[in-house]
């Protein structure tokens, strides 16, 4: 009897500190809506981590819409778990969605591929440095974790993903914008998104 009393006494004196008690809400709020992530590597140049920048970009990613409704489209930049290594996150651009005909780039064995149902074709903007669908083929859409909505850091490129060509005044900014435009055009020319039923 006495031991029970002392045990209850000890238990009632132990109080969960408030920060620990409220941690589930805090963790869920911090990880399931907008999440900042640092982007490393050159595979998304010149959109992300351009050579002209001294810092590595920090992007703000939307996990909620992707996780809830798989809301992503062609040309979105997404963060996904690598199909070959669970612990690695990749940042790539969705080039083709299910049903699209994509003209592939060299490491891939076939020259044209039809993206199977539930899959997407992802590529880095700089194919030379990129580990993407040209190496491991179309990836299941379930691997997509978040969608890039803007750049958080460095401050001079805050917010924007695609620079406006008409606003580019000096030569370097104009060249940068034109490179992006050209890349976008050549990327779109490689995808046939007209689906013929039957």
């Amino acid at each position: 009897m006495r031991t029970w009393h002392s045990l209850f006494g000890a238990l009632s004196r132990f109080r969960i500190p408030p920060w620990l008690y409220w941690s589930p809400t805090a963790v869920l709020l911090a990880t399931s809506f907008y999440v900042p992530m640092q982007i490393s590597g050159r595979s998304m140049q010149p959109t992300l981590n351009p050579d002209s920048s001294a810092w590595r970009d920090v992007g703000i990613f939307d996990r909620f819409r992707v996780g809830l409704s798989h809301d992503f489209h062609r040309d979105d930049i997404v963060a996904l778990r690598s199909p070959e290594n669970r612990d690695r996150m990749l940042v790539k651009r969705i080039v083709g969605v299910e049903g699209d005909l994509v003209r592939t780039l060299p490491p891939y064995p076939d020259s044209v591929v039809r993206v199977p149902p539930g899959h997407v074709w992802i590529e880095g903007d700089e194919p030379f440095y990129s580990d993407d669908s040209n190496r491991f083929g179309p990836i299941p859409a379930a691997l997509i974790d978040a969608k890039l909505v803007g750049i958080l850091w460095p401050p001079n490129r805050f917010g924007r993903l695609t620079p406006d060509v008409s606003l580019a005044k000096n030569g370097a900014a104009y060249r940068h914008a034109m490179t992006l435009l050209q890349k976008e055009r050549s990327r779109k020319a490689r995808v046939n998104s007209i689906h013929i039923q039957g």
């Binding site: 798989h70 199977p116 149902p117 539930g118 299941p140």
Partner: peptide, 8 residues
């Protein structure tokens, strides 16, 4: 596992 052909 998550289905590779039917996301979700």
């Amino acid at each position: 596992l998550q289905s590779p052909i039917e996301p979700g």
